[in-house]
Simulated scan of single mutants.
Amino acid sequence: MSGFHKLSIKNITRVTDKAVSIGFNVPENLKGQFQFKAGQYITLKTQIDGNDIRRDYSLCVSPHSGNLKVA
Rank of each mutant, 00 (worst) to 15 (best):
57 Y>N: 04
55 R>Y: 08
59 L>R: 00
58 S>C: 09
29 N>R: 13
50 G>L: 02
14 R>W: 00
46 T>G: 11
70 V>G: 00
38 A>W: 04
40 Q>M: 14
60 C>R: 04
3 G>W: 06
63 P>S: 04
41 Y>R: 10
48 I>D: 08
14 R>D: 07
23 G>M: 01
16 T>K: 12
14 R>S: 11
29 N>M: 10
29 N>Q: 12
65 S>Q: 05
24 F>E: 00
38 A>F: 06
25 N>L: 11
68 L>D: 03
30 L>N: 07
1 M>T: 13
45 K>Q: 14
60 C>F: 01
41 Y>M: 12
34 F>Y: 13
71 A>M: 07
66 G>K: 01
55 R>F: 07
17 D>Q: 14
39 G>C: 06
39 G>K: 03
22 I>V: 15
18 K>V: 07
48 I>R: 09
53 I>K: 09
12 I>D: 06
4 F>C: 10
4 F>S: 11
59 L>I: 15
33 Q>Y: 11
56 D>E: 12
17 D>K: 15
5 H>R: 14
25 N>R: 08
3 G>L: 08
65 S>W: 00
71 A>I: 01
4 F>Y: 15
45 K>E: 09
19 A>I: 06
61 V>C: 03
60 C>I: 13
8 S>W: 06
33 Q>D: 14
46 T>M: 09
69 K>Y: 02
11 N>G: 08
4 F>Q: 12
69 K>V: 15
1 M>K: 11
6 K>T: 09
8 S>D: 13
54 R>F: 07
21 S>D: 05
22 I>C: 08
57 Y>R: 01
5 H>M: 06
36 F>L: 08
57 Y>G: 03
14 R>A: 09
28 E>N: 10
38 A>I: 10
5 H>Y: 13
63 P>A: 00
51 N>K: 14
6 K>I: 07
58 S>N: 08
42 I>Y: 02
6 K>A: 13
68 L>H: 03
